[in-house]
Each structure stands twice: as structure tokens, then as C-alpha cells.
């Protein structure tokens, strides 16, 4: 019985200690964003997402926002007969997110070692090493096409990196951070993950996560659903409306004496 009581006390003690430590860890780094749910309605033209929280003073922070990793096929241009630029095939990019935003308090090369970057896929160099590109002949070619991939994504506003744009203030030994980001309308519906990394001595010491859900609503959702799941009906409606519009405008012009 005594042994049993001792075990219960020990378990309790362990639980209290564990709770205390986990609470302390949670207090070190927190993250919240103002938009957990971005609704794409008829008049949607992008949004803004603010990420804020608290961390230990004296640490650096990296905020990463990504969509789930996946597979992307893109057409590549090349010179034919040494003169004409044309599509010369497709490149498959594996393990790449469609959206990748990275913002840090300082240049990531100054605050983080390469091993940590690779482990958490932080920065374009780490993402390049993480990505598989097919078909490419060698590492140099992979780097060239990865750079083109980033250029393409940045032109669509789906990839961006910056440093020094996170606002920080220290109060009572706690670092308060804040960044306001433009959320591009080009970002398709889906789940996006916001990850904040707390860094000390070039290593990640804490991670906090939050989610942003982007979803279509109202007429946008209905039309999107119809186009994917009721293709025949959607096609017929599109044609009938186009025919009606053509005839309608024709009749209006005829009545107004435009074309006889």
C-alpha cells in the first residue's frame, strides 16, 4: 500500500513538473494571427495576415508560412536551333509548397546554421536542397531551374522572403513581435501553416505553430463546385447564358436602330 501511495505521489509530482515546464516553454514563444479563416467571396482581392506573439528577449525569430508540400509540373522554355525560345518540355518539382513566405528578424545566414536550416526547410537554399527536380542532368542544372522556379513563384506573389521587417519590443524581459503581411489573392483555397522559430546561438530553441484556412464561400464556392463536379450542366448553362446575352444585345441594338 505504501509503495502504491509513493507511486501515486511520484506520478503527481512528475505531472506537476511536466506541466510547469511545458507551461514555461509555451510562455517563451507564442504565436497568433488575426485571420484564422480567410473567406474568398465574390469581391475578394486578397487579405492581410498579422502574426504576433511573445518570445524570450535576446533571441531571433523566423516566421514561415507555407502550404502543404506537393508536386508541381511546369513548362520550361529553351532555345530551339539556337535562335527560337520555345517550350521544350516539362519539369516536375517534388516536395515544394505552392506558397512559401519567410520573414526573419535578421538575415537567416547570420542567425542560423545550415544544418538547422535544412532540418526545418528554412530559406531558399534549404528548400532547394529539399526539392527534387526532374529531369535535370546535374546539381548545377538543378540550381539553375530552382532559381527560375523561385523567380516564377515570386512573380505570382506566392513566394517571398525578407528580414528586418518583424517589429519587436522588449517589456519586462519578454520580446513582443509583430508583422503584418499582405495575403495574395493568387493563393488558392487550402490550409496554410504559420510556424515561428525562436533562435539562440544559431540554433532553434523553440517552435510555435498556428493555422490559416483559406476557403471559398457563397457564389464563388457554388460555381467552383459546379465546374468541378457538374461539368456538363455547368457547360450547358455557360453556353445558354452566352447565347442569351448575344441575342439580347442584338435585339437591344436592333430596337435602338443600331443594326438593321
Amino acid at each position: 500500500m505504501k509503495k502504491f501511495k509513493f507511486l501515486i505521489l511520484l506520478s503527481f509530482g512528475f505531472l506537476i513538473l511536466n506541466f510547469a515546464f511545458s507551461d514555461e516553454a509555451f510562455a517563451m514563444l507564442t504565436v497568433k494571427e488575426n485571420h484564422e479563416n480567410i473567406k474568398i467571396d465574390f469581391f475578394y482581392h486578397g487579405s492581410t495576415v498579422s502574426v504576433s506573439g511573445e518570445a524570450d528577449s535576446g533571441t531571433d525569430l523566423i516566421i514561415k508560412i507555407t502550404s502543404p508540400e506537393g508536386h508541381q509540373s511546369l513548362r520550361k522554355k529553351g532555345k530551339v536551333a539556337g535562335l527560337l525560345w520555345m517550350n521544350v518540355g516539362e519539369l516536375k518539382f517534388e516536395h515544394t509548397p505552392n506558397l512559401y513566405f519567410l520573414h526573419s528578424t535578421r538575415n537567416i545566414d547570420e542567425i542560423l546554421i545550415e544544418k538547422e536550416m535544412d532540418k526545418y526547410v528554412i530559406g531558399y537554399s534549404a528548400l532547394r536542397r529539399h526539392t527534387e527536380i526532374n529531369p535535370v542532368a546535374n546539381e548545377n542544372e538543378k540550381t539553375e531551374w530552382f532559381n527560375e522556379f523561385v523567380k516564377f513563384k515570386e512573380s505570382s506573389r506566392l513566394y517571398s522572403t525578407s528580414y528586418g521587417k518583424i517589429s519587436t519590443t522588449v517589456e519586462n524581459g519578454t520580446l513582443h513581435y509583430y508583422i503584418n503581411l499582405n495575403w495574395p489573392y493568387q493563393a488558392p483555397p487550402g490550409d496554410y501553416k504559420v510556424t515561428v522559430y525562436e533562435i539562440e546561438d544559431k540554433k532553434i530553441i523553440e517552435i510555435a505553430e498556428a493555422k490559416v484556412l483559406v476557403e471559398q464561400v457563397s457564389i464563388v464556392k457554388i460555381l467552383s463546385y459546379m465546374s468541378k463536379n457538374k461539368g456538363a450542366l455547368y457547360g450547358v448553362i455557360s453556353i445558354v447564358i452566352a447565347l442569351a446575352a448575344g441575342f439580347g444585345v442584338g435585339m437591344i441594338f436592333r430596337k435602338s436602330g443600331g443594326a438593321h
Binding site: 455557360s238 453556353i239 447564358i241 452566352a242 447565347l243 446575352a245 448575344g246 441575342f247 444585345v249 442584338g250 435585339m251 441594338f253 436592333r254 443600331g258 443594326a259 438593321h260
Partner: peptide, 17 residues
């Protein structure tokens, strides 16, 4: 899809002429 509308409108106008 939009050419369906434009060509309906255009065909109608030309048919009337």
C-alpha cells in the same frame, strides 16, 4: 465561351442585314 456570345451577337446583326 465568350466567343459564343460575341458571335451570336455578330451573326444576329449580320443576319438582319
Amino acid at each position: 465561351n465568350q466567343i459564343v456570345a460575341a458571335s451570336t451577337s455578330g451573326t444576329y446583326a449580320h443576319w438582319k442585314m
